[in-house]
């Protein structure tokens, strides 16, 4: 078995998503250790722009597996094509980003290749002839180091964890993909309001909890997020307020919500239950605002203000606005 590494690119609207470029970068590090070649694979239709991006992403070779039937993603159809390409290139590893698409697609590929998969990987290595990887378990309360006992090694990599690289222009080849009889197909993608930053991609997350007392008081949270300027901050929420119907499910941070790791996280009127901490404890800087000095959130916060959110947050919003204007 050769040591070639297949990296499956996520192409949306003709463009390669950044986490895919991060996965190619991680693959080049592995290839440097075991002498393999990195093959970036794009599947679908109208792949020229995506292939041009992939060609300079550090990959040694780019393959476009073209199929009009797969212009829109199909879990079963795409999986067949990826598994087929992994076999055709004798790949010892198949990687993709741990995104909604990666989580849907790569386990199917692993099953077709009758092998293991390690998900949400934060570190990956090749040593003594075997692939190893590190992944969080229990929502990040612990980590496991695993060794692949079956081949190929299949893994989804956590976004925002590996830095993309650039490389010399790699050759691009095209093959006709056999989509087969499709069981599931994406019909439509309903974009969120364009001024909204996805929670997991936001540089700043401003999260509110039950301490805000009423759903309409989330205006304070939204205003603070807006003070950072357009496209910077996203609103998050504790489960207590999501379950109460104050905020949508998509905003929940925690063990049964989203895990976020932004450079800056505000927890406002959030007590800091262990399930909430699981979703934000790897944020680089955590700020807590809570009127209870004993609230557990202060144990993980870098900076805390003990006080009433209704007084502190408007003052903070104004100060952030001025700080941003002064830049």
């Amino acid at each position: 078995m050769s040591q070639n590494i297949l990296v499956v690119a996520e192409v949306r609207g003709g463009a390669v998503k950044r986490p895919s470029l991060e996965a190619v970068a991680a693959a080049t590090r592995l290839a440097a250790r075991n002498g393999g070649k990195v093959i970036a694979l794009a599947v679908g239709a109208d792949l020229d722009a995506a292939c041009a991006t992939l060609a300079t992403s550090g990959a040694h070779q780019v393959v476009a597996a073209e199929s009009a039937a797969l212009a829109k993603f199909s879990g079963d159809g795409n999986a067949r094509v990826v598994a087929e390409q992994a076999r055709a290139h004798g790949c010892g590893a198949v990687l993709m980003a741990h995104t909604a698409m990666g989580k849907d697609l790569l386990p199917r590929v692993a099953a077709l290749l009758d092998t293991g998969l390690v998900s949400d990987v934060v570190d990956v290595d090749f040593a003594n002839g075997a692939y190893t990887a590190r992944k969080p378990v229990f929502a990040g309360k612990a980590f496991v180091q695993v060794r692949a006992a079956r081949s190929p090694f299949v893994a989804t990599l956590r976004p925002n964890n590996f830095e993309p690289v650039t490389g010399a222009a790699a050759p691009v080849s095209k093959v006709a993909a056999q989509a087969g009889d499709l069981m599931s197909v994406v019909k439509e993608i309903i974009a969120a309001a364009s001024d909204k930053v996805p929670l997991q991609e936001a540089k700043v997350v401003v999260a509110g909890g039950r301490g805000l007392k009423e759903p309409q008081h989330f205006k304070l949270i939204e205003d603070l997020a807006a003070a950072f300027g357009p496209g910077v901050a996203a609103v998050g929420a504790s489960r207590a307020v999501v379950d109460a119907g104050w905020r949508p499910h998509g905003e929940q941070v925690g063990q049964t919500g989203k895990v976020v790791a932004p450079p800056l996280y505000f927890a406002i009127g959030i007590s800091g239950a262990i399930q909430h901490l699981a979703g934000m404890r790897t944020a680089r800087t955590i700020v807590a605002i809570n009127k209870d000095p004993e609230a557990p959130i202060f144990k993980v916060a870098d900076f805390g203000i003990v006080g009433d959110a209704f007084e502190v947050v408007p003052a903070l919003t104004e100060a952030i606005r001025q700080a941003m204007a002064a830049r």
Binding site: M101, M183, V186, K187, I189, I190, A191, E201
Partner: peptide, 10 residues
């Protein structure tokens, strides 16, 4: 999905 909602038939 990231920043959008996907409708899938199966």
């Amino acid at each position: 999905i990231e920043g959008a909602r996907e409708v899938v038939t199966c």
